[in-house]
């Protein structure tokens, strides 16, 4: 049984490209083709517009909330080649603007908070940049030519205890920073930080068209890493590895339309898949290692009199 908790009317003038809840699910950030980023406070089913952030001069593709221990911080990336970091200091203020990409920035993601305040950005210029905060300044590192034609998605590996990680150089050196990216070269790549440099650790090939989203599963349970990727080839692939060096791929399903987004539940058990076919489906791995669809949300074709649920 699923019910609609609330519906937020964003008031954006055009399509939104991303909507992200903050860490505790109390605030919603949206970004749109109308160049703006909006922040809403959600409380007891009501919404209030907390901020309307204007700073980009092109469609804003993605927003990302930093961990609350750093304060209330939001990053946004746009067609205008810029990444903006916003912070709530009484009012929402732009605290940093990163403008070193040569083309649209498609994706931003904050690193696990254990590593500090670090942001990864993937751009259509094919490069990935990594911004690290040092008090009042931001250092930028770049991985040039990460994906030919462009990088579409970035996702951080959760901070895994090094004891579980065979590739950790020294068992006591703390968790390794790892990043998965998906691009227009049909590849998913995994990057690892090694002595302050980012090296390509793995190149995962299974898609036959542009990779649209990658999502690293939260690390729970036995030492196994899992990663989901979706592509214009209408496939969703789940990658698993026990040592982060060799990866096994499982095609979750081939869908009717392009899949744009994959999202893991908080404890990693359930994968939500959504795309051009106007459906959200939830997938779960059973004890036998097979992926099964457990529920499907279907929007747009509902009947107003019976909007809530329809059992198949």
């Amino acid at each position: 049984m699923v019910s609609v908790l609330n519906t937020v009317d964003t008031g954006h003038e055009d399509m939104i490209h991303d909507a992200e809840m903050d860490y505790y699910g109390l605030r919603l950030a949206t970004c749109s083709s109308d160049n703006s980023v909006k922040i809403f406070d959600l409380k007891n089913g009501t919404q209030t517009l907390a901020a309307d952030l204007k700073g980009h001069v092109g469609p804003v593709w993605q927003v990302a909330w930093a961990h609350p221990k750093f304060g209330n911080i939001l990053a946004s990336c746009s067609y205008d080649r810029k990444v903006i970091i916003w912070k709530e200091l009484g009012e929402w203020t732009k605290i940093y603007e990163h403008a070193s990409h040569d083309s649209s920035v498609n994706s931003v993601a904050w690193a696990p908070h254990e590593f500090g305040l670090i942001l990864a950005c993937g751009s259509s210029d094919g490069s990935i940049s990594i911004l690290s905060n040092n008090g009042d300044t931001w250092d930028a590192q770049k991985i040039p030519n990460a994906h030919t034609i462009g990088c579409n998605a970035v996702s951080w590996c959760p901070a895994i205890e090094p004891g579980y990680d065979a590739t950790a150089p020294h068992p006591r050196s703390g968790p390794v920073k790892r990043l998965a990216t998906g691009g227009c070269d049909n590849l998913v790549k995994i990057w690892r930080e090694d002595n302050e440099r980012w090296i390509e650790e793995n190149k995962l090939e299974a898609h036959s068209d542009w990779v649209r989203d990658v999502a690293w599963a939260p690390a729970v349970g036995p030492p196994r890493a899992a990663l989901a990727s979706c592509s214009q080839d209408r496939r969703v692939v789940v990658w698993t590895s026990t040592d982060c060096t060799s990866w096994t791929s499982t095609v979750l399903n081939v869908f009717e339309d392009v899949i744009w987004n994959v999202s893991w539940s908080l404890t990693g058990g359930i994968l939500a898949v959504s795309g051009g076919d106007n459906k959200v489906s939830l997938w779960r791995e059973n004890s036998e290692g097979q992926w099964a669809c457990i529920s499907e949300l279907n929007k747009g074709q509902g009947n107003l009199n019976n909007p809530e649920q329809r059992a198949l």
């Binding site: 699923v2 609609v4 399509m15 991303d18 909507a19 992200e20 809840m21 505790y24 699910g25 339309d257 744009w260 987004n261 999202s263 893991w264 539940s265 908080l266 404890t267 359930i270 939500a272 898949v273 959504s274 795309g275 051009g276 076919d277 106007n278 459906k279 959200v280 489906s281 669809c293 457990i294 529920s295 499907e296 949300l297 279907n298 929007k299 747009g300 074709q301 509902g302 009947n303 107003l304 909007p307 809530e308 649920q309 329809r310 059992a311 198949l312």
Partner: peptide
């Protein structure tokens, strides 16, 4: 598998995206 339908015309015309919020 259960199918739940929510009326939203923009979704019908555009397709949609979903993200988990917490648990």
């Amino acid at each position: 598998a259960q199918i739940i339908a929510i009326p939203d015309d923009v979704c019908r015309r555009a397709g949609l995206a979903a993200t988990w919020i917490g648990q």
